[in-house]
Design a protein around this nucleic acid. Sequence first.
DNA 1: TCATAGCCTTTTTTT
DNA 2: AAGGCTATGA
Length: 764
Amino acid sequence: MKNFLLELNPPQLEAVTHPAGPLMIIAGAGSGKTRVLTYRIAWLIDQGVDPFQILALTFTNKAAGEMRHRIEQIIGSEARNLWMGTFHSVFAKILRIDGHKLGYQSNFSIYDTDDSKSLIRSIIKEFALDDKVYRPNFVLNRISGAKNGLVSWEAYAENPLFLEEDKAAKMPEIGRIYKTYQLRCFQANAMDFDDLLFNTNVLFRDHLDVLNKYQHKFRYVLVDEFQDTNVSQYNITRKLSGVHQNITVVGDDAQSIYAFRGANIQNILNFRSDYPELHVVKLEQNYRSTQTIVSAANSVIQKNKEQLDKRVFTENEPGDKIELIKAASDQEEGRLVASRIFDTKSKLGVFNRDFAILYRTNAQSRSFEESLRKLNIKYRIIGGLSFYQRKEIKDLLAYLRFTVNPQDEEAFKRIINLPKRGIGDQTVARIAVSAAENNVSIWEVVRDIYRFVAGRAATAIDQFAVLIKDFQRYLELGKDAYEVASHVAKTSGILRDLYEDKTVEGLARYENVQELLNSIKQFVDNPDQEDTSLSAFLQTVSLLTTADTEDEDGDHDRVTLMTIHGAKGLEFPYVFVVGMEENLFPSQMMLQRRADLEEERRLFYVALTRAEKQVVLTFAMQRYNYGRLNHCEPSRFLDEIDPEYMRLSAQGLSAGRNEKSQQSRDMFDSMLSTRASRLAQLTPIKSNATPVPPANIAKSSADSGEFTAPSDLKVGQRVEHAKFGTGLLLKLESMGGTQKALVRFDQVGEKTLLLSFAKLKVIS
DNA sequence: TCATAGCCTTTTTTT
DNA sequence: AAGGCTATGA
């Protein structure tokens, strides 16, 4: 143990060996945060703390696994007894044990976003509301936001602010939808992601014996990525550490990128007032990146108003400048990045695994996949449409879910007519009515269908019921997850249906199901896995994080492709941050509010600071989006990097063989020179420079952060749009912070424009 | 009553 | 580009 401590610098050592009481570690990018957290846990155990008494909450399950592994190397196999995992997985476990006090059974289902959305959609339909006004996505976000802020449906219905906002957004029924949604989840013995945290809060609030149990169990509570916790999560940790007060949080306000999920920078500030005895340690030395990268990242993040006082520095070598590459299209962007990786590999003798391509949206991965494949460069994609989101996988999982928890309404809807057994919407609706009339669950109707419904459809339903009862018998016999799952796959007809589909896609789907069965087998055969029940497997699957997905084969030498969100906590020698275009990064949706722009900037900061040796930024002039070719402008963030640390690359010039490419070359040249002069005009950023308001969005009204339309825009005016020409403004509409204008254009007819006031000019 | 073709809308990040 | 919804035909 002692030897390990020798490797640490003074603030790191201070953090690791802080004896007891509340501790906050403000850890700048690349300052050895994970190492400190790991050593601190090892140190605690070395000091005689029982691993059973330590709870560590991490951001991904993979991070937890790796940390556990490293601790094991330091102090031995005792480390297995640590409680470690994501908030969601740890508290799902606790709810399985104690959730019955809230009326849930321990086999409760976990609804994913699709399930939630589908339930919301059916409630909207049942209420005979217009789903164009009540957009399921919006409603779900609203409910999720309430739950993450610990607002119950009861409280929501009484809150004048929410009611006011909903009325203004023309959605006065959201409170009623929220209530029904919660009741339906409860009846289905299901919790969504937010419920796992919300219900833990309720459990700890209403059942002090339970709270007491865990308060005494966990003498030490540690929270990683604290800047990304929301109120609901914060409240749980605060309660848990209420007795011993031994809470350690590690975070960096500059890397807070989950406000859209309810994360609250304010938590860091609240923390100080909640724990007057708080000890604060700042880790400011960056061991990861070159001086250039650290300085460039600092020059960007300094534009944010909202941040703690901190000075990240490094003693590493200066390193290469940040390169900016311009591409004609998204396809060329892919080619340039791929060939750049190819060249760097052969020139410097580095490996695929030394490169990461980071983008803002998952959809951007395509062009890079194609060009990497062409050059025979192996890659892995993290996130995106993951394995577990594929239809055939979700279908089988729905069968398994329904077998474990026959109250699961969403799983039922998914499988009742799959494979096709002639049970349509009408029949399902009739079952639902029957269930409601007799005040029993849907499963109770299905399992005794002849008692409730007679007729042709009843036979088909009875067959379905017999099938499920057979699956349930397997569970009762104590078969493990693999035995049940392979039986279900064979007997349900899913596998047979896919087998008969001889198309390429059908074959792939068949293999996917086989692969799922393989992974269940692995789960069951894992010696570390104590609980090999189907229920345990389902829980693990539904709480997997994107970073948790394993490499398919043992080949680790791959270029990594992922969103910047997915790159949190990771590092790579060479990082490409691609798609540096206005409205893509920063995202169009985020530009409405000042606070959100700051979050996008933090995201850019995270992207830059992933790199050890070099950053390459790229942008395209044209990009396919929603099946359309769009013209793009370079991102404002490019202007925010101190030009001292940047270099424009001449790459992207395809050799001019004809007039057309000569033309585009000229355009590119002039582009480069205006770009260069714009960069040169920027004076280096001083430490307390005031943020420059973005020029091309409407001015925010003071600091309220609300978007306001120019006041001179009125219905009936003639307006001009850069793309669509002139027209007549028919209607102005504001909904939930989203502003719309309906314009009848002379040339192209009526169009609804989103947030495009800046591009609308009044001409009469 | 059900299945399918074509129309229409969406429009970020993740547990 | 993809998924949901509606109209149409079986």
